[in-house]
Lab assay of single mutants.
Amino acid sequence: MAAGGDHGSPDSYRSPLASRYASPEMCFVFSDRYKFRTWRQLWLWLAEAEQTLGLPITDEQIQEMKSNLENIDFKMAAEEEKRLRHDVMAHVHTFGHCCPKAAGIIHLGATSCYVGDNTDLIILRNALDLLLPKLARVISRLADFAKERASLPTLGFTHFQPAQLTTVGKRCCLWIQDLCMDLQNLKRVRDDLRFRGVKGTTGTQASFLQLFEGDDHKVEQLDKMVTEKAGFKRAFIITGQTYTRKVDIEVLSVLASLGASVHKICTDIRLLANLKEMEEPFEKQQIGSSAMPYKRNPMRSERCCSLARHLMTLVMDPLQTASVQWFERTLDDSANRRICLAEAFLTADTILNTLQNISEGLVVYPKVIERRIRQELPFMATENIIMAMVKAGGSRQDCHEKIRVLSQQAASVVKQEGGDNDLIERIQVDAYFSPIHSQLDHLLDPSSFTGRASQQVQRFLEEEVYPLLKPYESVMKVKAELCL
C-alpha cells in the first residue's frame, strides 16, 4: 500500500493539533497551500530580480507567473513527485505547466533550498508574528487579574506546605514575570531571523556568478533584492546548502521555554482548584465526569500541561538535527523538520489560546482563602504575639514557653481530632496574655502579614508589564474561544 493518505478522510490519521486544537490561522501558515504558494512567490521574486539585473526574462513571463501564483494543481504535483521522487522539481514542473512561456526560467540558477529553506524562514517569521500578540493578550488578562487582587491576602506555599502570606495578585505576578520573559525572547528570536537568500547549491553562489558572467556586484544585488522582497532586513552571508540548523534550535528553545512557563502556571491553577481557592472557567453544560456528576475538573489547565510537556520535548529534535548536518548538509534534517517545526508552533498556539481562555474567566473564592488563612495564621502570628507581650512588660522566655504549650495543644486538636485551630481562643482565655487581649485582632490582621506584596504588584505592572504590552494595544480586544 502506498504511503500517505487522504487526510480529510475519517479513515486516515490526522494530527489532533490540526484537527482538534490549533487555530485556523496557525494551521494555514503550515498548510501545503501556504507552503507551495510561497515557493511560487519566491520563484517570481527571483525572476523579477534577475530581470532587473539584466537576464533575458520578459515582462510577459513575469506576468504569467504572477497570474498563476494561486493556480496550484495539487493532484498534478503529487503525481509528479511520485514520478520524480523530488518535491521541488515536482512543483517546478507543475508551475511550468500553467506558465508555459515562463517554464524555462522558473528556478533559474537556484537549488531546492532556495524555495525550501527560504519558505521555512518566512513561515517561522509569520508563525512567530501570530504567537506574539496571543502571548501579549494572556499577559494582559493576567495583569488585569493581578491588579484587581493585588491586596487580597492568601496563604503562600513553599514545598506545598503553608508559608508566609502573600497576595493573590502577587502570586499571579510570578506567572506574568515568566511570560514577559517569554514574550521578550519570542520577539528577540523573531527579529534575529535572517533570510537564507540566493546562495546556490553549497552556499557559494557559483551558479549565479556564472549567470551574471562573473559580476560579483550583481550577485550581491540579486541576494539583497530577493531578501528585501521577502520582507527581511538581512540575509546570511555564510550558508551551506541550507541555512544553519542552529536557527531551528533557537526558535524551538524559546517555544519550549514558553511551554515550561505555561505548565507551571496551569499546575498552580490545578492545585488551587483542589484547594477550592480558584477555578478555571466551567461552562453551564460542561460535564466533569461521566460517573461523578459533582466533579469540576480543571480540564483546560490539564490540557495545557499535557501539550506543554510535548512542546518542551520537541527542542531535542533540532538539537540532534543540527549535530548531524555533515559538511554542507545531509538530508537527516528533512523529514524531522517537516514534523517538529509545525508541531512546535501548533502546540504553542494551542496552549496560548487555551491559557487566554482560562485567564479571561478565572474565578476566585475569597471566603475559602480566608478560612485557610484562619487555619494557619495563628501559628504564624506567634512571633508577633511574643513581641507584643514583651512590649507590655512580659518575659520573652516565659511567653515563648506559654505559646509553645498552647500551640501544641491547638495542633493536637487540628491533627488528632480534625478540629479547627483554636490557638487564639486559648490565648484569649489565658490570664497571662490579658495585657494584649485587646491587640489580638490587630495582630491577626492578614494584611499585616503580606509585606509589600501589593506595592510590588503595582510597581511591576507599571514599570515592566504595561510598557512591554504597549506595541500590542491594537490587538488586545480579541477574545479566545474554545470549541473543545
Rank of each mutant, 00 (worst) to 15 (best):
C172I: 09
R40C: 06
M316H: 11
I427K: 06
Y13C: 13
S448M: 09
G4F: 15
G259T: 00
V262M: 10
L193E: 12
V414L: 13
Q397D: 11
A410P: 03
P162V: 11
L124M: 14
C266T: 14
R245S: 01
I385H: 01
Y466A: 10
R137D: 13
S290H: 00
H400K: 01
Y34G: 15
A230W: 04
T382D: 04
G169K: 00
P293G: 09
G200L: 03
G197V: 01
P435V: 11
I176L: 10
S23D: 11
A3T: 14
G156C: 06
E228K: 13
Q397T: 11
L183D: 04
A77K: 05
Q221H: 14
I351T: 14
T119L: 08
I123E: 07
L319K: 00
S151M: 09
A78D: 05
T239A: 08
I265M: 12
H86N: 00
E25D: 06
L311Y: 09
N118G: 11
Q41K: 12
E370V: 03
K75H: 01
C483H: 15
E328Y: 10
L46A: 01
R149W: 12
Q325C: 11
Y34T: 06
P467F: 03
K229R: 11
Q397V: 06
A256S: 14
Q161D: 00
V429F: 14
F208V: 10
A480S: 15
L275S: 10
F460K: 00
E79V: 10
L44P: 06
A322Q: 07
L311A: 07
P446K: 03
G214V: 07
K415E: 12
T350H: 03
Q164C: 04
V363D: 10
T347N: 14
G5E: 10
I287R: 02
R396Y: 04
D398M: 10
V88C: 15
D120H: 08
D192V: 13
L209M: 06
R459K: 11
N357E: 03
L183A: 06
P378W: 00
A3S: 12
I237A: 07
A344K: 05
A235W: 13
V390F: 06
K199A: 09
L124Y: 05
Q428R: 15
R190L: 13
V429S: 12
W39T: 05
C173I: 02
S290K: 01
Q63I: 11
N118E: 04
E60C: 11
I237E: 08
L84R: 08
W326I: 05
G116I: 12
E250L: 11
I106C: 07
N68M: 05
G393P: 06
Q428T: 11
S334T: 07
F236V: 09
P471T: 06
I385K: 02
K295V: 00
Y114N: 02
D333E: 04
G393C: 06
R404A: 12
S261V: 03
K246W: 05
D120G: 04
A322D: 04
L272Y: 02
P153Y: 08
Q205K: 02
I287H: 09
A163C: 01
K199G: 11
G240D: 01
T347M: 03
W45Q: 09
T52H: 08
L42S: 07
V368G: 04
W39P: 00
G288S: 07
E50I: 01
V465Q: 15
F74W: 09
K264N: 04
A410V: 05
A308L: 02
E360I: 11
L346Y: 12
L311V: 07
R303P: 00
E279F: 05
T119A: 12
E328T: 00
N71C: 05
E50C: 07
D441S: 02
E213N: 06
F95W: 12
L444T: 10
A410S: 12
Q205I: 10
G451N: 00
F195M: 15
Q184K: 14
A22H: 08
D11Q: 15
T158V: 01
R303Y: 03
L121Y: 07
D11R: 14
A103Q: 05
P16R: 14
G104P: 08
R245N: 02
K134Q: 14
P24N: 15
E148V: 11
L142C: 09
E425N: 09
S253N: 10
H91C: 07
S454G: 13
Q205G: 05
A235I: 11
L314C: 13
R196D: 12
I339P: 00
V405A: 12
E302R: 02
S290F: 03
N421R: 05
K218M: 06
C180W: 06
R371L: 01
R404M: 09
I237K: 08
P446N: 05
R338S: 00
V364S: 12
V138P: 11
K147Q: 15
P10K: 12
H159A: 00
T350F: 08
N71F: 05
K82N: 07
P24E: 14
M76V: 11
F195P: 05
I373R: 01
V198D: 05
Q416Y: 14
L193N: 13
G169F: 00
E50T: 12
H310C: 09
A49P: 06
R426W: 11
Q455G: 15
S438R: 05
K224I: 06
G116H: 06
R338T: 01
A78Y: 08
C27W: 11
D441V: 12
F212E: 04
A388C: 06
E79Y: 15
V405Y: 07
R37D: 09
T38E: 12
L352D: 05
V364Q: 04
V254W: 07
T202W: 01
P378C: 07
L355T: 06
L271E: 02
D32F: 07
Q408V: 03
A143V: 04
Q63V: 02
L186E: 02
E283R: 13
C305I: 04
Q320A: 06
K233F: 11
M181R: 12
M476D: 15
K402M: 11
V198T: 12
H400W: 02
F379P: 08
Q458S: 14
A392C: 05
L55Y: 00
G104Q: 09
T267K: 00
S290L: 03
S434C: 11
F460C: 09
D349C: 10
S323C: 15
P10A: 13
K229T: 05
A344F: 05
A388T: 08
L44C: 08
R20L: 04
F36M: 14
N384R: 11
K367E: 11
M292D: 02
A411Q: 15
E417A: 11
D422I: 14
G418L: 02
K246L: 03
I351P: 01
Q320P: 00
D223Y: 03
Y432T: 06
T202S: 14
R337D: 03
P293L: 02
S438P: 15
A22T: 10
V262A: 15
L108W: 10
R149Q: 14
G451S: 10
R196T: 04
V368A: 04
P298A: 14
S323P: 00
E228H: 14
L132T: 07
T330Q: 00
C305Q: 01
Q439W: 07
E425T: 12
D117C: 12
A322K: 04
Q221Y: 09
R372S: 03
V92F: 00
M476G: 15
A411T: 09
L211D: 10
Y114G: 05
Y21L: 11
M389K: 04
G231R: 08
D420L: 06
Q41N: 05
I339N: 11
Q285W: 05
P435Q: 12
D223K: 03
E25V: 10
R270G: 02
P318C: 13
M380K: 08
G109I: 00
I57C: 06
F212P: 09
I62H: 04
I265L: 14
V115K: 03
A322E: 11
S207N: 00
E80C: 07
N336Q: 12
V247H: 13
S301H: 15
G104F: 14
D441L: 09
G418C: 00
G419Y: 10
E277C: 08
P100T: 13
D420N: 10
L307I: 08
L44M: 08
K199P: 00
C399K: 02
L44F: 10
A291Q: 02
F28Y: 11
